[in-house]
């Protein structure tokens, strides 16, 4: 069969190398691949302690075709602030600086530096690939771990009691120019938002729901499916917020039951019927609130 001219769906150049050390099916590795496709070569990446410190390869190798600065766990936003400042001083304002942190480095230990940078409206892109626990250290809970999830520090008979921290709401409250959520199951949306973020001056924050097969107790091949279910069940709405005020919902799913999402993951195995109902109610409530913000 001959074929029609192929129009690539997403930019073709690859700025991530094979041979990186992510687990099979890792959402975080795919996320980086998309992000760099969107941002291009004129990008610097700052990685605090997290799975990505490993994924990116041990000395003397790198998994990325852009510069990486590996830094301490809590410092991504501060390092990015300084790096951007220096680049501005050196006449290289066109370089995109991207801080790339896990949920631990974002919601928890790096939260102060992030909030500081957001308040100062530093001109860089902060990305949280959120796998909802400290995976690098062996699946401990973070403040991003959702209600009812198993981790090694919220064990089977005592799964997490508190809901996930609302990082998007918190960042919106900083009124930063651009804030978005993206999913690896929606590559076009993902890439468009990174490209948009690149074009905006000031602080940008992008939250990626990032499936982790060993941490979420899922089969390696389920990462995209689960990401999609998260969006379709409205657990993870795809949205953009400009200046903390202008909300845009990028996709309005019909709204399948949260059960489909939860049942696909071993970490939610112990949820009771009541728990599931509770989660559904919370998701519905938040969705309504979101819809109100939009209209």
């Amino acid at each position: 069969m001959n074929h029609v001219d192929i129009q690539p769906r997403i930019p073709e150049p690859e700025l991530m190398y094979s041979g990186h050390l992510a687990c099979p099916g890792c959402g975080a590795s795919l996320a980086m691949r998309y992000a760099l496709k969107a941002l291009g070569k004129n990008t610097m990446v700052i990685i605090p302690a997290c799975c990505w410190s490993i994924i990116a390869g041990p000395f003397p190798y790198s998994a990325l075709d852009v510069p990486i600065y590996h830094t301490a766990f809590e410092t991504a936003a501060a390092v990015a602030s300084g790096m951007k400042a220096a680049l501005d001083q050196l006449g290289k304002s066109d370089v995109t600086v991207m801080a790339w942190a896990g949920d631990g480095g974002t919601y928890d230990i790096g939260f102060q530096a992030l909030s500081g940078a957001a308040e100062r409206n530093e001109d860089f892109l902060y990305v949280c690939y959120d796998n909802e626990a400290y995976m690098n250290t062996g699946i401990q809970r973070s403040s991003s771990t959702p209600f009812g999830a198993w981790t090694t520090t919220t064990p089977e008979n005592h799964t997490k009691e508190r809901p996930k921290k609302d990082i998007v709401g918190i960042l919106a409250a900083h009124r930063i120019p651009y804030l978005a959520t993206v999913s690896v199951a929606y590559p076009e949306d993902f890439i468009r938002k990174f490209q948009k973020a690149k074009s905006i001056r000031g602080m940008k924050f992008i939250e990626i729901l990032s499936p982790c097969p060993p941490g979420w107790k899922t089969a390696d091949d389920q990462s995209i499916r689960i990401s999609r279910l998260a969006v379709e069940s409205r657990i993870f709405p795809l949205l953009e917020i400009e200046h903390g005020e202008k909300y845009t919902l990028n996709l309005e799913p019909e709204g399948i039951s949260v059960r489909d999402y939860l049942e696909a993951q071993g970490r939610f195995k112990k949820l009771s019927e009541k728990d599931v109902e509770h989660i559904q109610k919370e998701v519905d409530r938040k969705w309504e609130a979101l819809k109100k913000r939009i209209s």
Partner: peptide, 11 residues
Amino acid sequence: VSLGTTEVNPT
């Protein structure tokens, strides 16, 4: 500092 790429790893 890196001097090569992870393509050395036959994953």
